[in-house]
């Protein structure tokens, strides 16, 4: 079974700035039917949302931005990355691979900073840039 990922950037007010469903690079083309996925997606979001509590706890005990796996639910792991502006990059995954996730987070963080530098982007608002989306997907293909 292909590893599935769910990636979300959560703003300071718990609202998602960006979210995407990622499939692993090995099976990039796989497009399983959407109906069960829809149900699944909300579960992912709920898991991510509940993991925010842990993020907030862990981030004060950790110097690094990358907090590694901070939470798990059933077979899912939640890896977190906190930016300086307290936006939280959260990845839900079912395969443990710390290094590649770290690389993924670092790259996405760079992208996020570029978005922030856009004078027309207001912090804590959803990122609608198409380019950001495609870049994130590209990074995901590279590292995950």
């Amino acid at each position: 079974m292909a590893a599935t990922y769910y990636f979300a950037i959560v703003g300071t007010k718990d609202s998602p700035l960006y979210e995407t469903e990622l499939t692993s690079s090995s099976k990039a083309a796989s497009n399983f039917d959407t109906t069960p996925k829809d149900d699944h997606r909300h579960l992912n979001q709920f898991i991510i949302h509940s993991a925010l509590d842990v993020v907030e706890e862990v981030q004060w005990n950790n110097q690094a931005l990358y907090l590694k796996v901070i939470d798990r639910f059933n077979e899912f792991y939640v890896s977190a990355f906190v930016t300086a502006g307290n936006a939280r990059l959260l990845l839900l995954h079912d395969v443990k691979s710390e290094d590649s996730i770290k690389n993924f987070f670092n790259e996405v963080h760079e992208m996020y900073i570029k978005v922030l530098m856009n004078p027309f982007y207001e912090t804590n608002t959803p990122i609608t840039s198409q380019q950001f989306d495609s870049k994130v997907k590209f990074i995901a293909r590279r590292f995950l």
Binding site: V10, K13, D14, S15, P16, H42, Q45, F46, H49
Partner: peptide, 11 residues
């Protein structure tokens, strides 16, 4: 003081 995840809120 609005916060939250709209999709989850709807759910």
């Amino acid at each position: 003081s609005h916060f939250g995840w709209p999709e989850l809120q709807i759910e």
